[in-house]
Simulated assay, not measured.
Amino acid sequence: MSLPTIEADVQVLPADHPLQSGRTSASPLVTTYQGTRGAVTPIWMMRQAGRSLPEYRALRVGTDMLDACLDPAMASEITLQPVRRHGVDAGIFFSDIVVPIKLAGVDVSIVAGKGPVLPHPVRTAADVAALPDLDEAALAPISEAVALTVAALGDTPLIGFAGAPFTLAAYLVEGGPSKDHIAARTMMHSDPETWQGLMRWTATITGAFLRAQLMAGASAAQLFDSWAGALSLADYTAKVAPASALALSRVHGLQYTAPDAATRTVPIVHFGVGTGELLGAMHDVGADVMGVDYRIPLDEASRRLGGTVPLQGNIDPAFLAAPWPVLEAHVLDVLDRGRAAPSHVLNLGHGVPPDTDPVVITRVVSFVHDVAGDAAARGSDADAGTSATTSAETSTS
């Protein structure tokens, strides 16, 4: 697959951007993304905002999902809710991967219990040619929502969010969710020219969507490839990776001056579901940090990445409903395995299930900040030759 590349747009972030002003540049999340391991592992969770929170459900009554995403005040409030409740180390911008598709003018809706539905699937070269260009002025509600959120977050960083080109393309071709994405994968091989045109379109709109969030004040970016795990490494590398690289090229080169006077760029995270075999290829598209799902241990993920890449992950969401001692042991195991990487941001290996008790999330965050942080310090003492008490002897239940 040969897509035209866009050179990184080297640009200094404005003086009032949270990274440039120093509000978030020394935060545990940002420094960890940049490879510096702190005393305590920072934590946030994918889908931390949403159906698991009663305040979210109350706010969303009578409002369609995509309407909520495009209402700046509502999207900002939803983003802030889990930060207030749980004390996580970052907000993740509340949105949906199909928002840029809708903003471009494509007919798409989110059906409760099913997900995104497109009544007119994109199956032919004519369909791809008819896809509308995204007028970046349409991204104004996104920029406004980010600005509102960043103003309220203070020194807590906001992470920008966008769906990867393959996942967007899969929805467009399938017309909705699919178990195997056979229609999309068939187009990939049977009509490569049309596939390339579709991937160019999805890369363009999702890159613009992510860039709008960063320029409005987000301190990091995450590209989320929900369905890349359906691909072989060969297909991902040849048919998908160039489009992901094209999308991320829109957010490379956004520079700021860190507290140590070094010039740095906004960190980029890349995450996929079921992508343990694709980690190296996904990193190579231009990511600084690799998100890891719950199917592969973090120490093995780090080995596959050469031991040089900061990681994010990877508590199994199923453990959130387990008895606390079981969940606690799992969290400590993930933290321990995460020490194989240069640095580690604790997260789930996917998203918070909608029926999760919010009290559990708050407890995990507190545990990681307090007890697990103490355990890490004790581990460092033990490495230095001093005696240490095991986490099992000191952790609370």
Results as ranks from 00 to 15, higher is better:
V352R: 00
G87S: 06
S391K: 05
G115I: 10
A145F: 13
F93C: 00
P267F: 05
L311Q: 09
D383R: 15
E328D: 09
A287F: 07
G163P: 11
G349A: 10
P297C: 03
A208Q: 14
P192S: 12
P119E: 13
T32Q: 08
E393A: 14
L66M: 13
L29V: 15
A384I: 00
V292S: 08
T265G: 06
P310I: 11
M46I: 09
D355C: 01
L118I: 14
A130K: 10
L70N: 09
A392W: 03
F367T: 02
T32Y: 11
W44N: 04
S52T: 05
L210W: 07
A8P: 12
P157A: 03
L320T: 02
R47P: 04
R304A: 10
M199L: 13
D374C: 12
A130M: 05
G50V: 04
R84N: 05
L168A: 02
G35C: 02
S2D: 13
I97N: 07
Q312F: 08
Y33F: 14
A382H: 10
Q255N: 10
R123H: 08
D64C: 04
V251Y: 09
P28L: 04
W44M: 01
D293H: 08
R57N: 13
V365W: 06
L103R: 06
T36F: 10
S397Q: 10
D336Y: 06
A261V: 04
V360G: 05
V352E: 08
Q312I: 06
L148V: 02
A258K: 06
M74P: 08
A258H: 12
T389A: 07
V10H: 14
V352K: 04
E277C: 03
V360D: 00
P141D: 10
Q48S: 06
P72Q: 05
A112D: 15
R23H: 12
E393D: 11
E328Q: 11
P317W: 05
L278Q: 02
G291P: 12
